[in-house]
Design a protein around this nucleic acid. Structure first.
Length: 560
RNA sequence: GUGCCCGUAGCUCAACCGGAUAGAGCACCAGCCUUCUAAGCUGGGGGUUGCUGGUUCGAUUCCAGUCGGGCACACCA
């Protein structure tokens, strides 16, 4: 059977590259062949704009060149009709038989359909969420969690060896602040009190921690065991307990959100393990530092920063960016040649500094390393009104609230289904609505519908992969076949662009194709050959919906 | 003031690194359930892609400027 099924696009690109070698050998190296999916069916299944690109350097008319390319195109069982259109587009139509073969491919590969080898098994780390342990996770963290997790699933499917990492800033001023807030609560001081510090954390959860501390509660998890001493004068003990308490809370939230991590890194460990000191020594040795006004500075302006940064303050402490550099140096030394940091856009200014710091080490770290995916802010809408989030005031829309209120599936979908670069409006009422307004159900419904049809058929699902697919000839079937063919390509684009939302849009399109097909045709018909072919097609569609939803961490119910 | 992100239908968003007539959903209007799930389908109206220039066969996409929204600009993290 046809083996090029899983990737017509690159197959065709290869054919045209060969044709290019024949038509314009001297230009072959400089021209990249790109196959597009035209928006309109009349323009074929794939289109190539190569002839127009060549028109200028070859000083020939695009249509002339197009004809020459077509004449030079090697034969392929996949290629049906080839046409020249418009200014010089070459439109390629795939043979029906080749399209039909995708069904067998999907059914045989099952959940592995869509796996590609972009990463070639190389190590890759995605750091995401990395919330400070100073309060509950809110919607913004939720977006980071959803996007980061989808990236991990996507990159894994694209052939990378993915490590998921969470970095805890459990040292520094924010934690001192947390400690003080809890301590004051222990002593009965409330945020309303004039003595409450300006920067104190005001949320009710601070009081919960204080009560638990006084009650000498224990935090038990497989990664930490901390028991409160109950001694409210012991700031150290309060800090340990507070951080442990909030880590546990965040962990429970993430668990409810179906997010897991492979590695938890603690900022405090960078100090105790001597990694901060080691990084500082390396930076000094590299010659990019200097002393001024009693502080130690790094000349980050040598590496694109707009001003130099203090590394060691006059009081002897390090600024936050030093452990950041130490941390990323550690990532590099752990062998991650590709690292992606998923963060909120409010942290964007650290990018230049971290990269500059790593460059200053002079140890051969590439300039643009690591990669960043920054998601923009999330605003929450309830009853048509914006819900303000204020950490200080303790007013929150927590991730837990959202999961409880609108469910894990809908929350994940809404947070991951948009381009990270755009500000996101999370409409709680919309996400909650179990109606056609909600795109999650639209996709899940397609899956449930297919399952319903299949369960009313008395044959064996395993046999469908061997069915004769030649009966799949209707326009609806062609569209659905082509959509299935597009799936691996969609994974590649989404993984390359670090854009998980593309999966969500693909799934909406796939579900729409199926729903149209469903309304236009019957599957359980008398003609055995037709029936098997159609059932195979919808079974394959269900498989791809399942695969895609899994990338988003959303369930594919069999009944709704 | 400086840097980063974004301006696309009434609303929420796409557009496969420059392609052909800019697409979906919601909302609105008109249809489709005595046979596989109507959380569905079919059709219709709705746009100067914020604005002005530039680059070229061709611009929502690239460049410059401008307006608007968001974020960030510590010896805080």
């Amino acid at each position: 059977m046809t083996t090029a099924v899983s990737n017509f696009k690159s197959h065709l690109a290869e054919l045209f590259t060969q044709a290019l070698q024949t038509v314009a050998p001297d230009l072959a190296d400089s021209q990249k062949v790109v196959m597009d999916r035209p928006k309109q069916a009349q323009h074929g299944d794939y289109a190539c704009n190569l002839a127009m690109q060549l028109a200028k350097p070859m000083r020939r008319s695009p249509r002339d060149i197009a004809q020459a390319l077509i004449d030079a195109l090697p034969a392929s069982p996949v290629v049906g009709k080839v046409e020249i259109a418009g200014a010089g587009f070459i439109n390629v139509f795939i043979t029906t038989a080749a399209k039909q073969s995708v069904v067998r491919g999907v059914l045989q590969l099952g959940e592995e359909f869509g796996r590609i080898n972009l990463g070639e098994g190389r190590k890759l780390q995605v750091e995401f969420v990395s919330a400070n342990p100073t309060g509950p996770l809110h919607v913004g963290h939720g977006r980071g969690a959803a996007v980061g997790d989808c990236l991990c699933r996507l990159l894994d499917k694209a052939g990378w060896d993915v490590t998921r990492e969470f970095y805890y800033n459990d040292a520094g001023a924010q934690i001192d602040n947390l400690t003080l807030s809890v301590q004051l609560r222990c002593k009965g001081v409330t945020p309303d009190d004039p003595a409450w510090p300006e920067n104190g954390y005001r949320g009710d959860y601070i009081n919960d921690i204080a009560r638990a501390f006084i009650a000498k509660e224990a935090i038990d998890a497989d990664y930490q065991h901390v028991r409160a001493t109950g001694d409210i004068e012991d700031a150290n003990s309060i800090r340990h307990f507070g951080v442990a308490y909030l880590r546990r809370e965040q962990d429970l939230d993430l668990h409810a959100f179906k997010i897991r991590f492979d590695v938890y890194s603690l900022e405090s460990a960078l100090y105790t393990d001597g990694k901060v000191e080691a990084a500082v020594k390396k930076l000094i040795a590299s010659g990019h530092t200097y002393e001024k006004d009693g502080a130690l500075w790094l000349r980050t302006t040598d590496f694109g920063d707009d001003k130099d940064r203090v590394m060691r303050k006059t009081d002897g402490g390090y600024t936050y960016f030093v452990p950041d550099v130490a941390y990323h140096l550690d990532k590099w030394q752990r062998g991650f040649t590709k690292v992606i940091n998923e963060q909120g856009a409010d942290h964007h200014s650290t990018i230049t500094r971290v990269r500059a710091g790593l460059q200053a080490l002079d140890i051969g770290i590439p300039k643009g390393w690591p990669d960043y995916v920054l998601h923009q802010m999330v605003t929450v809408l309830r009853n048509g009104e914006e819900v303000k989030i204020s950490k200080r005031a303790g007013s929150y829309v927590t991730l837990r609230d959202l999961i409880d209120e609108v469910g894990c599936d809908a929350t994940r979908f809404f947070l991951a289904a948009r381009h990270p670069d755009t500000q996101l409006v999370f409409d709680i009422d919309l996400a909650k609505s179990q109606s056609n307004e909600n795109p999650v159900y639209y996709i899940q419904y397609a899956h449930a519908r297919i399952h319903s049809v299949l369960s009313q058929w008395d044959g064996k699902l395993d046999a469908l992969a061997g069915a004769d697919m030649s009966a799949l000839e209707s326009e609806y079937e062609q569209i659905l076949l082509q959509r299935l063919i597009d799936y691996p390509q969609t994974i590649e684009s989404a993984a390359t662009d670090l854009s998980p939302h593309l999966i969500a849009f693909y799934l909406k399109d796939l579900a729409a194709d199926f729903h149209s097909y469903y309304n236009a045709s019957r599957f359980l018909v008398d003609d055995e050959k037709v029936k098997l072919a159609r059932l195979a097609l919808i079974a394959a569609s269900a498989q791809v919906i399942r695969n895609g939803l899994d990338l988003l961490g959303v369930t594919a119910p069999e009944k709704m």
